[in-house]
Design a protein around this nucleic acid. Sequence first.
DNA 1: GTCTAGAGGTTGATG
DNA 2: CATCAACGTCTAGAC
Lengths: 261, 261
Amino acid sequence: MEEIFTDPTLETVRDVLKEYMSRPFVVQVSGGCSVNYQGRAKSKLDSGERLLIVKQDNAVLIHGPENYQPKNWQPQTDEFDVFIESGQLVVVSRRFNPKEVVEVRFEDVELVFVTRLVDDRDLVVRGHEVDIHEAIERDPAIVEEGLKIVEREKKTDAGFIDVFASDEEGRLVVIEVKRNPNHNSVLQLGRYVKEIEEEFPSREIRGVLVAPKASESVVSYLEDRDLSFCEVSMEEVIPSYEKFRQNQSNLVQFGPDYSAD
Amino acid sequence: MEEIFTDPTLETVRDVLKEYMSRPFVVQVSGGCSVNYQGRAKSKLDSGERLLIVKQDNAVLIHGPENYQPKNWQPQTDEFDVFIESGQLVVVSRRFNPKEVVEVRFEDVELVFVTRLVDDRDLVVRGHEVDIHEAIERDPAIVEEGLKIVEREKKTDAGFIDVFASDEEGRLVVIEVKRNPNHNSVLQLGRYVKEIEEEFPSREIRGVLVAPKASESVVSYLEDRDLSFCEVSMEEVIPSYEKFRQNQSNLVQFGPDYSAD
DNA sequence: GTCTAGAGGTTGATG
DNA sequence: CATCAACGTCTAGAC
């Protein structure tokens, strides 16, 4: 189930788009175009050669020859318009919330490719912040010996505390988990500690930032506020590959080949 | 300058990739594949139909049938490997900083498309945070009548203050500009105000968050700390379209057609 | 629907 | 090269 048109007329492209857009097909148009966007911001892209991709859920991407990011895009489309005007093929993608419009104007098209992709597999990712949370819950000693979890996602006026615990000496410990901590993480942690000090005025409170790494600047910023840093390695955080590898027998395993230190 | 191969053998695909990858061509491969990633995190994607795009700067995208986002990616590649193993075409993209590897294993390929895209036009975007800064500098009355700019990007120990001003009554005004403010923006502003209070102990200090919008929660958080919120519309912030429209005579103008309120 | 927090965020500026 | 701030961030989850 695929269709390819090389050097089609704009009329052909229009008809192909009308037939396959808004239906579960991936439509690609490669050619010279300009793009306008208006919504939360506005953008203008003068004429150049690009690749337009309309996905099966009506997400729209306009990719230039370089960069990971698309030049313009629309995460989803509520309404398409396709028409020819002044010798240009105009494709308009609108979404209503937020109200945004992307308009692509093709002057010439090199190739149109229509296909249907079947992909029901989920992407499994490990190494997110939640994996650090879970690792701490499984084994609080990762942070420090004698730590006991009191509550997870404890609500305060300043927001949710990632992990709320008590240490060996009975002090309350406010733990903020971050994958990439910065100064804001420190401010946030400080605020949480303040909230807890108000809630438990008779208790001694500690604040700990737990992360795979922190810059010196962040660490010193922590120390300035009597907070501390606990480094955890992703190795102790990411579960063993056994579960991760399931149903992957025909694939190269993650292993020595990749971990070239 | 383009090449299209439909239902090619994996050997053909390998040879095409070897010839055109790492050179300034956009190479697309559509077919059934699985993907592994390891780097800052790890991910695994079982077999399904996807579109692999290798851009002219060696950025790599693996797109599924849906979503704006690619399933896996590599913003840039320092080293490619292409080979056939166990009846699968393996494409490995490595980058060194951060050290990350994406491995795509094709079981079958539906289409390969090679092209060179020429696009030297820059995307012009209006409506970023800096545009709000500039609007305030042009016309401080956007924030409030009688406001006078004292300094922009004023340095403090807590970071840079976006706009530092004085109001009609001679009070100092610390202005924090945000496009999408959140609680952290409030904490940040509070911190700046504290710094300024230390620097000017004899003056009265106000803190104002300027943004196109703020959630109620953020506004009440501001008020709790004796800070205030000033809403600016993007219309008063984004410069008139005259400049924006330059060289766009052959394009439909942004205008009434788009601004369906 | 709005709002909040996280992301393999990415990217560009800055020291 | 590291650090930081902004993004049309996007996206998922909670309310």
